[in-house]
Design a protein around this nucleic acid. Sequence first.
DNA 1: CGAACGGTTGACAAGGGTCAAGTTCGGTGG
DNA 2: CCACCGAACTTGACCCTTGTCAACCGTTCG
Lengths: 275, 275
Amino acid sequence: MASLSVAADRQKNPERHFVAESQPWHGYAIYYEILSHHTSLTIRDREALTALQEAPKRVKKGDVIKSHARNAKYLLALQDGWACSRRITQNGHRQIIDLYLPGDIVGLRDYHGGSHFDEVAMLTEGLIIPFQKQKLDEMMRKDHHFVQGVLATAMHQSNIMADRLNNLISHDATARLAYFILELHARLNFPHPEVMNLTLPLSQQVVGDLLGMTNVHVCRCLSHLESKGLLIRDKNSHDIRILNYTALLALAGFNTAYAYSLNPYGPVPKRPQSH
Amino acid sequence: MASLSVAADRQKNPERHFVAESQPWHGYAIYYEILSHHTSLTIRDREALTALQEAPKRVKKGDVIKSHARNAKYLLALQDGWACSRRITQNGHRQIIDLYLPGDIVGLRDYHGGSHFDEVAMLTEGLIIPFQKQKLDEMMRKDHHFVQGVLATAMHQSNIMADRLNNLISHDATARLAYFILELHARLNFPHPEVMNLTLPLSQQVVGDLLGMTNVHVCRCLSHLESKGLLIRDKNSHDIRILNYTALLALAGFNTAYAYSLNPYGPVPKRPQSH
DNA sequence: CGAACGGTTGACAAGGGTCAAGTTCGGTGG
DNA sequence: CCACCGAACTTGACCCTTGTCAACCGTTCG
């Protein structure tokens, strides 16, 4: 407990990282971590990025932060909180497509038109930092360096989605759930994968939507994982502690964990162990 | 039959579009269609792109055209034939992740490192045109215009994947299959969605891998769709003719068909009808 | 205190996997 | 030309995983 990472602390105490809504934002932005995952950021790069940011907005659970009508010309950096992009099917059901965690950049997928019918909604309360797409474009035009960063970040999201697809197609419900937990663990605790706790502020209904199963079955599978001694849930706090990482990896076939912590530019994070 | 599109003709008679292997390539490249889907290509743009192309290679069914060891520094434009990217799981099974059709650009997802453990293999014979990533990088550096094109193309692939994910999560087997057929129809017959034929040169085993179901069940679902009068299979030729487009749309919940034929820069294609 | 929400559990049914046998078709060799 | 073979497709019987429906419990909040 004493060695909680910054990311884990942010995850547990988001309010500590909030700032007043109306002030200009010059603080430390978490998405730097993700960006510097893919390209080396100099001090000047960070200054340039910071100059792009508009005033951060505090948002509530359930708020729609992006749609064809809302923030269409903006990218959003998710400083705190969880969000999802979803699509309304013809029968009115909302299908969740994608999940955004603190540090993720929202809106890359419809950067140039396309997918006008997705909307992004907050799953928890949080804080978002808007960017004008146009200004980022100008910045990319001036400095090719950022093109690399943006492309790599977009491709990284794409790879995560490919992983998820792979997971959904080829495993049964329990393995899907295990995989999901491991993915979140890797993303949330980056760059400190040795931390074995994570907070999962989602209802089992939402988890089910993400994994293509019912809330009832999510419950059954969670109980199953717990009864096998792979993890422990802290009831009522949404906390999960992984007890047997390797067994969970084996069950899930999560052989791409490395992808989430691979960082050619930053300090190499310690990892529990692997193959 | 008389009004077959260029794309449909290419699909039926790939050999007609082949060129001798060792000659330099200055012909008409099909990926222009896809790129011009996302950004306007001037004559000069096309010339610049053509200059990047290296000698095309004819490849056989089953050939691995890209892996961590093969063509790692190249992007490949798929001029003819179908390919898939797949991942080897710990039990040795090959899980298919993604499908590439004529005109697609292979390798964007691992443009900057990442996903070293995917490989791309041909599902049919075909023709590929290699590009050096590095040269495309230089081109993007010189002309920001191409950055837009590449980003948009990458995001388009990402959106298709999101669609597939959505499909897999939220529908039963029959609907998944219907959706898959409609996706292929839209991509193959672009920009002529009024053509109701498509060729599907895949075994039911491969289709099953893509959709997360067994070959046996693929067979059952296909029969089911046929018995409901939604489509007809031409036995032994892998041809499918869609008989009732709207009913198929309704069954599949394929409400994003527009995304595949939306072309802000080119001529607007006629579409059958929608919602 | 009661309503609302999310989680848990059980009984039952259905969708889809598994296994196995049979069929069709294209290729190969005598 | 025919016999044989393998690959892919088809079909049926059976069973397991997961969805459905419902009741029940615990917490939170007005």
